[in-house]
Design a protein around this nucleic acid. Structure first.
Lengths: 338, 338
DNA sequence: TGTTGGCACTCCCCGTGAGCGAGTGCCAAG
DNA sequence: CTTGGCACTCGCTCACGGGGAGTGCCAACA
């Protein structure tokens, strides 16, 4: 185990490097931090930290920079979560309060997060699987052409066209609509399949085909839309990620375009609290020189989706984590209110 | 007026520069193109072209590169629109045919366009103002809480919550729903306001407040959603824009984030055909070193929205224009079918 | 055993200068 | 108007050489 002071040295190195973006040497460290020891001692400590793999030098006779492992130790043991200042809190609240619908909430959140952290923000739309049904609507656009509209408690609306195998009377339609709603409104998506299982049997023979088709489409919508959507913002901030440009930036932009990858990334964050993935801890290769800070948010006590930021491994972890957590809380509140 | 050969020289310069990304000199030009004259002659022509402002040299004693004005002449007079190869056409069709809903169509289009042009693609969602109403649905979520769902002929769905000033019975609701639909289904959004103007009068006194509120929300939706949405793709391609990195790329990314700016940009493209804005012709400063190729698309004979790409001024204009036009056509077809 | 100052050493970084070469402008001849 | 010739410009590359920040090691000291 590392001594108290060595940890302190590591913390100092991380802080300085994050600030200056330049390898930090022993002398500069003792000058900027009150470690109470001489540069020579710090050098010894650095040698140990390097042996253990927490820091590295880009070249012989250069200062040290933290490794992924070093950052990991930093966030696990050395860094707290820096709470936001109260003006910041107020700004968040004001900014989010004006939202009019779900798209707007997500849009504002992503902009806010990008602005606060000066990094790339990613916000997942509230997931359908954990949400409940607020209403199902069935419309006849033509005798054998129906539209299914599904409204969730998080304000999301999904619609699907249905080509019915046979014409379907207005009364049967109203009947189906009513029965469907009475069964599944207020229920979780995951529970819907078994709740509607026996519904076709209660209809006239001639209508069963249509009913089955409608139900099939409904269930399909539930499954399909579990492929969640997300919104990204602050892409311009990648220019801050590093100086070694085209090389670093390209794969990151590509990764950001693949929403599937990002969703997986967010999804992996199983931790009920905040999850921080540093550099190579990210499964996706393009993000090997970035860190992802993610946290769940939700309208109630349960998380319905995730949000987070993607930034350089060399980032201000306490500040970023503070911002991410705070934004998630406020979004949760907003969703609960609406 | 410039002689035939001088135009030919300009064309050759543009083509070579687009290919190599390096200033092109007189000797190289005569070698790669059959101009039938000597380098010295070409040098004279170049001097003229430079005087006229069509080309410039980065430094004394370097080759020439086209200016914005040079590109402008090139696209106006010298370049055709390069039709796509038939495998490409087939690929487009296949790729777009699988789309299941509007989001999917737009999403596929944007990816397709980005892939074909290797540039940043921008696709505007079909505008509401020009589309027609397919259906309006009114649901009572609670006695005094309604939801309005608006479905357009382009497959777009908008929903709004309404807090009614008074409870509203199910029969009244059904009545309003029916009357509303019979009046505005199939009509253009722009015509809706006057079509519903006198609707409250035909209701019982006690229901008029609610009806007015509903109508107000409906009209508001029409107006508000004229702020159109758009989707962007292929952002990673900005890394191809130039070598002078952080400087160029940052403002472009910022501009791409401001959808309002992009919408304005697309909107300015009044031309019924294709519009090409080159470098400083773009009003937005961040896009001064990029070109925008945009064209309208629509389900019928009329354009309902725009799509296009943003790329370096140094782009393959004929190829890009060909791809943009072809994609717009196919998207139009897809929309018309659905 | 841990800490400290001293010291030689290693390299990165940066400015300088030379040589190269692509490209130009001009001129005189065809 | 076109062409070949020619001197000139200037960006690019590379080698050379301090300067400096930082290191590792060692011997001395608590």
């Amino acid at each position: 185990m590392l001594s108290e002071r060595r940890l302190e040295v590591l913390r100092a190195i991380v802080q300085d490097y994050v600030g200056t973006e330049e390898p930090v040497g022993s002398k500069a460290l003792t000058e900027r931090h009150k470690l109470g020891v001489s540069p020579a001692t710090v050098r010894n400590d650095m040698a140990v930290l390097e042996d253990e793999g927490f820091i590295a030098q880009p070249h012989t006779s250069a200062g040290r920079i933290p490794t992924d492992k070093g950052y990991r130790l930093f966030v696990d043991k050395l860094a707290g979560v820096k709470p936001l200042s109260s003006p910041e809190r107020r700004a968040i609240q004001n900014f989010l309060d004006g939202a009019v619908d779900l798209d707007d909430v997500v849009g504002r959140t992503v902009r806010l997060l990008a602005q606060l952290t000066r990094q790339v923000a990613v916000v997942q739309y509230p997931s359908l699987t954990r949400s409940t049904v607020r209403h199902v609507e069935l419309l006849a656009l033509a005798p054998a052409r129906l539209m299914l509209v599904l409204i969730t408690d998080t304000g999301r609306v999904e619609q699907r066209m249905i080509d019915a195998p046979a014409p379907f009377g207005e009364t049967s339609l109203a009947d189906l609509r009513a029965r469907l709603n009475s069964r599944i409104v207020g229920r979780r998506f995951a529970d819907v399949p078994q709740l509607v299982q026996d519904l076709p049997d209660s209809f006239e023979q001639e209508d069963r085909g249509v009913v089955s088709t409608v139900l099939a489409t409904l269930l399909e919508t539930l499954v399909e839309e579990t492929e969640e959507r997300l919104m990204i913002g602050g892409t311009a901030n990648i220019t801050r990620f590093g100086h070694d440009f085209p090389l670093t930036i390209r794969p990151v932009l590509e990764a950001l375009e693949e929403h599937v990858v990002l969703l997986k990334l967010l999804g992996e964050a199983k931790d009920p609290g905040m999850t921080v993935r540093i550099g190579h801890e990210n499964a996706h290769e393009g993000l090997n020189s970035t860190s992802v800070v993610a946290v769940g948010y939700g309208s109630g006590d349960e998380a319905v989706a995730k949000l987070g930021v993607v930034g350089p491994t060399r980032m201000d972890y306490p500040g970023t984590m503070g911002a991410v957590r705070a934004v998630a809380r406020y979004v949760g509140q907003i969703l609960a209110e609406s």
